[in-house]
């Protein structure tokens, strides 16, 4: 089986990768990074979102070979030295989840919103986030969490 090198969360990983295997499959099954989730395999739900060159990318539709040598960030790479990223803290403060299965993808998509728009309007948030599904319906809280992170707000 061919092998590729991926730079995930700042660390270089040389891994086996079957021809045509998705980035999602490599992250989850070969690198053990299971924070990135499978939801649909069609790029419609956003549960598998990772950052590629700062852009929210659906790892389920991305062939792993196509990102060989690229720098990737997954949910596991956001917290630094056990300090949660402000977005993670904001999701926690707003309790912006129920079952939590969509949360990794939501946070990674939210990250790309804030990269593009440090102080996003509601319309900008919706534009960036509309491809992410929360079946539990916590969208209003997720929007509140993104606004909170953008403001650098502390918990009242």
């Amino acid at each position: 089986m061919p092998s590729i090198t991926l730079i995930v969360n700042g660390a270089e990983h040389k891994t086996e990768c079957a021809s045509g295997e998705s980035l999602l499959s490599v992250l989850r099954h070969r690198l053990g990074l299971t924070g990135t989730k499978y939801g649909c395999g069609e790029g419609q739900c956003g549960a598998c979102t990772v950052l590629l060159r700062g852009k929210a990318t659906r790892s389920c539709l991305t062939p792993a070979e196509s990102v060989a040598g690229e720098k990737l960030v997954t949910i596991e790479g956001l917290a630094a030295n056990d300090h949660m990223h402000p977005l993670q803290q904001a999701f926690l403060d707003e309790e912006a989840f129920q079952c939590g299965y969509c949360t990794s993808g939501m946070i990674m998509s939210a990250y790309s919103v804030l990269l593009a728009h440090p102080h996003p309007s509601d319309e900008e948030i919706i534009q960036y986030m509309d491809g992410n599904v929360c079946r539990c319906g916590t969208y209003p809280r997720i929007m509140a969490a993104i606004r909170r992170a953008a403001q650098g707000a502390k918990k009242p």
Partner: peptide, 21 residues
Amino acid sequence: APKVDGKAFVTGLHKYTSDLT
């Protein structure tokens, strides 16, 4: 009261069935 293990969900560390090995 905040969700008891909320941190595990926002950090991607919670293991759902599909994450187990």
